[in-house]
Amino acid sequence: MRKTLAKASVRTALSLLFFAVIGTAVLASTFSLTHDLIVKTEEAAKLKLIMQVVPQSLFNNDILADTVTVEASKQLGTDHPTTAYRARLQGKPSAVVLEAIAPDGYSGRISLIIAIREDSSISGVRVVSHKETPGLGDYIEFARNRWISVFDGASHARYKEDDWNVKKDGGQFDYMAGATISPRAIIKAVHKALHYYEENRSRLFAPAAARPSANNGNRSGVQVQEVKE
């Protein structure tokens, strides 16, 4: 009895193993067939997003390869290291693309990419992901509304500290009636990111010390250490 039980278990387990091996083989071959294309499309999508905030006239470097790792920072609202992309024109720094999080949206975090020109004026801002109310707070998406363009060209030269707020709160920025919380959160996040940039400018543009090495596949160059909070 015991022997047949053991035998049956082994036989069943072996046939399960057989199916597992075939399944894994199918998966592995699909992965290797599509992997290169997936990497390529993801990079193209990333580049498309970056090109929305940094006009092509501002850079002629391989912006996806010219990156720097930015440590988590309260000013950027990030809680893990992010990647900043550097735009250069004829080798001279022209703009940097930062990731930032507005933690106080109406329904949670709004994640943003913010491009700041070398002269610390904002080149463009886009919302990457958010959970704001559809049809109400989602005008922060560029695809739905051009509101997010209010930041184009904004700088500390143009706006005083108190101006970085929606008009309702005495600031200079437009918003749409019915949803003030989402723009308020984004304006605050962009303002803080601009401060971050001004305090860390030289670090952000520091030349990539080490080119990506073959063994770790990491594209980031130098590590930027956060000093100020």
Binding site: G23, V26, L27, F31, T34, L37, E42
Partner: peptide, 19 residues
């Protein structure tokens, strides 16, 4: 097992061709 393999294959293909 079969279903999850197929779904993952479809996911790879969509990721590659319909990003």
């Amino acid at each position: 097992l079969i279903i999850s393999v197929l779904v993952t294959v479809v996911q790879y293909l969509m990721n590659a061709y319909l990003y």
